[in-house]
Simulated assay, not measured.
Amino acid sequence: MNYLDYISIDPNIRFGRPCIKGTRISVSDVLGWMASGMSMDDIIADFPELTLDQLKGSLAFAADREQKLKYA
């Protein structure tokens, strides 16, 4: 999956946080919801404008960013 199809970074939207394209829903919003126990189906039920691919794109973006982090 190419997460760049689903994620954008715009300094004028949510202070430049990575967001799902065409929305103001940030990757960190999605991760927070999942961390609190929401399933992808739960998120889509609450935000029917989102798709499963967009949510998977958010996870792929976060995983890629984690791999690129340098730890001391």
Results as ranks from 00 to 15, higher is better:
1 M>G: 13
1 M>H: 13
1 M>Q: 07
2 N>V: 07
3 Y>G: 05
3 Y>P: 06
4 L>D: 07
5 D>R: 15
6 Y>V: 11
7 I>Q: 01
7 I>N: 01
9 I>Y: 02
9 I>D: 01
11 P>C: 08
11 P>G: 07
11 P>L: 07
11 P>S: 10
13 I>N: 10
13 I>K: 14
14 R>V: 05
15 F>T: 04
16 G>Y: 06
16 G>F: 03
16 G>M: 08
16 G>H: 10
17 R>H: 03
18 P>T: 03
18 P>H: 06
20 I>M: 02
20 I>K: 00
20 I>A: 02
21 K>I: 01
21 K>H: 00
21 K>L: 00
23 T>R: 02
23 T>L: 02
25 I>L: 06
25 I>Q: 02
25 I>M: 06
28 S>G: 01
28 S>C: 01
29 D>Y: 12
29 D>P: 05
31 L>C: 07
31 L>W: 03
32 G>Y: 14
32 G>T: 13
32 G>Q: 07
33 W>P: 03
33 W>V: 02
33 W>C: 06
33 W>H: 08
34 M>E: 09
34 M>T: 08
37 G>V: 14
37 G>N: 14
37 G>Q: 12
38 M>G: 06
39 S>C: 04
39 S>Q: 05
40 M>L: 08
42 D>R: 12
42 D>L: 15
42 D>C: 09
42 D>N: 15
43 I>R: 05
43 I>C: 15
44 I>Q: 14
44 I>V: 15
44 I>G: 12
45 A>D: 03
46 D>A: 12
46 D>K: 10
46 D>C: 14
47 F>N: 08
47 F>K: 09
48 P>I: 01
48 P>S: 03
48 P>G: 02
49 E>V: 14
50 L>V: 09
51 T>Y: 07
52 L>I: 05
52 L>W: 04
52 L>S: 05
53 D>Q: 14
53 D>P: 08
54 Q>K: 11
54 Q>M: 12
55 L>E: 09
56 K>V: 11
57 G>Q: 15
58 S>V: 03
58 S>W: 04
58 S>M: 10
58 S>T: 11
59 L>H: 15
59 L>I: 12
60 A>Y: 10
60 A>F: 14
61 F>R: 00
61 F>A: 01
63 A>W: 08
63 A>L: 13
65 R>E: 13
66 E>H: 05
66 E>K: 05
67 Q>Y: 12
68 K>Q: 13
69 L>I: 01
72 A>N: 09
72 A>E: 06
72 A>Y: 09
